[in-house]
Every structure is written in structure tokens, then in C-alpha cells.
Design a protein around this nucleic acid. Structure first.
Lengths: 150, 150
DNA sequence: GGTGTTACGTTGGTGCGACCAACGTTGGTT
DNA sequence: AACCAACGTTGGTCGCACCAACGTAACACC
């Protein structure tokens, strides 16, 4: 018959790290599908959003702001620059650096992708009340903050 | 100077899907490091645990139980069988199927990896009280359950 | 009792996120 | 002048998730 919905291994089904992983995996898939409509991926959005909201930065700084490796920033910025969403200019004050800035089109795209993110998020969190969403956010934030300062 | 700790893009830092992703990513890294000591990966543990706890199954069933694609099950079971942690036998009742069973060694390894999981989990959830951990588990479970029955 | 459909294991491939090592160049320190 | 640190870039690796296609085997229906 081949029925039986996807299940988790017995002992794992209540394991936070399993739940975390599965939920994040699901969220990532939804997000990926949403971003696909823009023909861009998660890295692109993170960078674009950071540029639009926090202003221009060097690639290394961008990487630190977004938690993306320098080498991956290169490729993503290449893509964004190739579409005119972002401009790469040499930093006159430090010839090692490039200053990356979002163009007007880039800022627009960042807004559009932000809207997509909101939409996906609403879908993802549909079963939770506003209070519960805030609870979840608080718990995750505390976990992250604790582990970010090793 | 290169100071500045990894940060999230401004607007994203409070976005559940970002938090979910980052936390899961962190958990996955810790888990991966833990499992590396066993020279195995997440897929191997899921399968081994499922076999040890829920008993033998065909590869397709295993895939469904663990949420792993059939084709990925093949490779992982190959690894496990190569180490004698698992046995692949033809199903006399259905010649399409293989019956996979954990060996004694496999069951032992499953227990050891389970202990590793516990250890990692304790580290991950260190900043949360028991009540908060339960809260987190409940919220994630509800999210998952909601989305699993599309 | 053939026929069509479904499930199974397997092969081979894709995509994304994350990470690492190394190099040449440039800036700051001493 | 010599050293070291940071920058951008190239070119990999790994793990997880997913898909398409194949041949074989089981099942359903008429």
C-alpha cells in the first residue's frame, strides 16, 4: 500500500535537536521555494538585507554581519553585482577592500524578498498564537546568544 | 582590527526562521562533531536508532520512519553493513525487499551514539530550564505536526 | 492469465549551506 | 626593513535533502 506518513525514529521524536533540525529543514525548504521566485537564494537575501538596512560594507565585514564565510561572500556578491543589485567599488582608504553598496534596484529587491520572507514565516508559524511565537523567538534567541559567546 | 563578532542582518535577528536556522545549524555542527568520534554521521544514527528501537524493516520503510530518501538509505545502509553494524537480508515474503536488522554491535553503537546525542543536547540546552526545554519541545512539535499533514 | 499499475532497491545526479586551505596583495607594527 | 594581520579570491570538501530513471517483483482487475 505504501501508506504511512514520514515519522521520526522513536526515541528521537522528542529530542530537541531532532525537532530543531526538522523544523529548520522545513523552514529552509519553504524559504528556498519562496526565494526561487526571485531567482535568488538565502545567501543573497542575507547580504542584500544587510546592505539595505545597515549600509555599505567591505566583503569581510559583510561576511561577519551575515555569518557567511568570506569565500562564499565573493560568489554571492558576484551574482548580485551581475544583476545590478549591488555595486562593488574599491575602497580609496584601503586598497585591500571593496566597498559593497546596494543599488536602488537592490534595495527594492531586498524589500520584495523581505515580503516573501514574511509570507513564508506566516505560513510556517500558522499554528502558533502571537504569544507562542514570541515565546519561541525568546527561547531561540537565548540559545543563540549563549552559544555565540562560546 | 578585525573585531566584531558574527552578527545577524539587522531585520533578521528577530525573525523566527533565521533563529531556527541558526540554532539548528549550530546544533547540527555540535552533533556532527560528536558523531565524528564514532566515525558516523546523522543519517547513520537515525537509521541505527530506528532499527534498534523499532526493529527490523525494509529499506523503504526505514526511509519513511526516518524521513530519509530511499536513495540515501541505500548508501547509509551500505556503510553500516560494511561495518557489521547492520545486516541486509532478502525478504522471503517479498523478493523486492531487503530486511535490515541491527546486529548486536549495531545496537551497542546505537546506544553509544545515543549517549553522545544526550551529551550534545545537554550542552545545547544548557541555558534553558527544564520547563523552558519542555516549552521549546512542545512548540516545535506542534509546528512539525501541523506541517507534516500538509 | 495476461495486463497495467504500484512498490522496491539502486544508480547517478542536483542544489544549498557551511567550512577550510592557500595565495598574492595591502596595511599596520615595531 | 621585516613581520604579521587582514583582505579578496580561487578551488576545493562535506553533509543533508531531493529528484529522475531503471529493472525487478508484487498486486489488482478483468
Amino acid at each position: 500500500m505504501d501508506n504511512a506518513a514520514p515519522q521520526s525514529p522513536a526515541g528521537l521524536s522528542t529530542s530537541p535537536s531532532w525537532l530543531l533540525n526538522q523544523t529548520a529543514s522545513h523552514a529552509a525548504r519553504l524559504l528556498s521555494e519562496g526565494f526561487a521566485a526571485h531567482d535568488l537564494r538565502g545567501y543573497h537575501y542575507r547580504l542584500l538585507a544587510s546592505l539595505a538596512e545597515d549600509g555599505p560594507a567591505s566583503q569581510a565585514d559583510l561576511g561577519r554581519r551575515c555569518g557567511i564565510d568570506r569565500s562564499d561572500v565573493v560568489a554571492a556578491i558576484n551574482d548580485l553585482a551581475g544583476r545590478g543589485l549591488v555595486v562593488r567599488a574599491p575602497d580609496p582608504a584601503d586598497r585591500r577592500r571593496n566597498v559593497i553598496s546596494a543599488t536602488d534596484g537592490g534595495a527594492d529587491e531586498a524589500r520584495r524578498m523581505g515580503a516573501t520572507l514574511e509570507r513564508v514565516q506566516a505560513d510556517l508559524l500558522a499554528p502558533l498564537s502571537a504569544t507562542e511565537r514570541e515565546q519561541l523567538t525568546r527561547l531561540l534567541t537565548r540559545l543563540l546568544r549563549h552559544h555565540s559567546r562560546h
